[in-house]
Design a protein around this nucleic acid. Structure first.
Lengths: 233, 233
DNA sequence: GTGACGTAAACGTCGTACTTTTTGTTCCTG
DNA sequence: CAGGAACAAAAAGTACGACGTTTACGTCAC
């Protein structure tokens, strides 16, 4: 999935971001704005704006007289959904998917516990609806429909936690779920156990049982990690 | 703390980012590039590059014929250290500090557990050294020195976890610690209990006791949260 | 070998002109 | 009066060319 719409800026940004994330430009390599302008057949104006954005993501660093230097991975803003998307499209998707899933396994249980305490009736209803949707699409190669409900489900939990930082992780989780569904790591049908866990999690949140919500989410997370172990070496 | 060095771009970006984060431009307000160029007495080029960066952080949205619209808080890239810094400087610092501390309380215990398993001897040594530094600066209004060791300590733990996403949270933690030290929320001397917990955590990591490391970090986190409750209404 | 100096390469900034999209208005028609 | 089609203007998007500024690097004298 590339970002969106036309526009020279978007195109150049997406191409360069993808290339850097894929390691086609190793750290330390220098890019010259003039060359880039020539390569993409756009004005230096456009290239400079792209570089500035890449710089704000710490993917590159621009210095006078030297050029635009690609920065090492440790410097990247790996929480930027755009960067995540670029990396998930690239070579080390497995590693990346694992890191992100471990992150989820740390965050989501806590978020679910908070959600059990704070969720509004509307959120509970929406959660149950999503769980039902997951059940309905859990058999018969309806992966796309399942994914949609799965994403919505986790987004609601994170939002219902009432913590802004958790809520904003919804995009990251969405990228992870979409990434593992679209690329490799997925059986033909989702794990039935996972579906059940989601249903029970929705119940736990509705009943305000924080401990159960936390425990169930942990189980979902370890399941996802285990699935990664099996499907991605 | 403003970002760094000179440069028109940096100045305009920092000023605008600060203003938006502070709520001086409520969501929906439109800014015109020409006006901004005039206000800051810079060329439209510079303003456009700034806008592009702000846009990549989802702080604003630029549309033709309408202008640059400020986006609602829910859209912001709140994991961007730059955005965090801007927000911590602004009005709702308490709310922000609480969100971030809850985030830490979810992440750091898990990271510490992993660190206990994965830390290299060098990392263990550095950790102990930091803990000693915290002890040494824990009395007599040496808050700055204490802060420095505290930041280094948590950064090492996050790095030693071996998970990239955790490691990259070091900057966020650094911002939080610096924010609470510099602005309001700190006693004259650090909580002695917290210092002890850090020392014991360093030991637990060195001994590879993951469970203890996780538990101790949790205690540190609840302590920090409690401190927030006491000092920030 | 060392240090001062100069030069050129790359980014940084500017101004202007032109294009493109989008909105709002006007005006015509049914 | 309603509806819609053509039109005009506003603002961002793009391009180009010029000049300023910093700084790596080579040169030359000592």
């Amino acid at each position: 999935m590339t970002t969106q719409g036309p526009g020279l800026h978007t195109h150049v940004l997406d191409t360069l971001g993808l290339e850097i994330a894929a390691g086609e430009h190793p750290p330390g390599q220098v890019l010259r704005t003039d060359e880039l302008a020539q390569r993409f057949d756009v004005s230096r104006t456009v290239v400079r704006e792209v570089i500035r954005v890449l710089e704000s993501m710490h993917l590159v660093e621009s210095r006078r007289r030297v050029g635009v230097t690609v920065r090492p991975t440790e410097a990247w803003n790996v929480y930027d959904p755009q960067v995540i998307r670029w990396r998930l499209a690239g070579a080390d998707r497995p590693r990346q998917l694992r890191s992100l899933t471990v992150l989820r396994s740390a965050i989501e249980p806590v978020a679910a516990g908070l959600a059990a305490r704070n969720a509004t009736p509307e959120q509970c209803a929406a959660l149950t609806e999503c769980a039902l949707g997951m059940v309905a699409t859990s058999r018969g190669q309806q992966l796309e429909g399942y994914l949609e409900h799965d994403i919505a489900f986790h987004r609601i939990v994170l939002n219902a936690s009432g913590n802004e930082m958790f809520a904003r992780l919804g995009d990251v989780v969405a990228e992870v779920l979409a990434g593992r569904t679209h690329h490799q790591v997925m059986f033909e049908d989702p794990d039935p156990a996972a579906v059940t866990l989601h249903v029970r999690l929705a119940e736990a949140v509705r009943e305000g049982d924080a401990a159960a919500a936390e425990r169930l989410t942990k189980e979902i997370a370890v399941g996802a990690l285990h699935e990664l172990d099996v499907l991605a070496p």
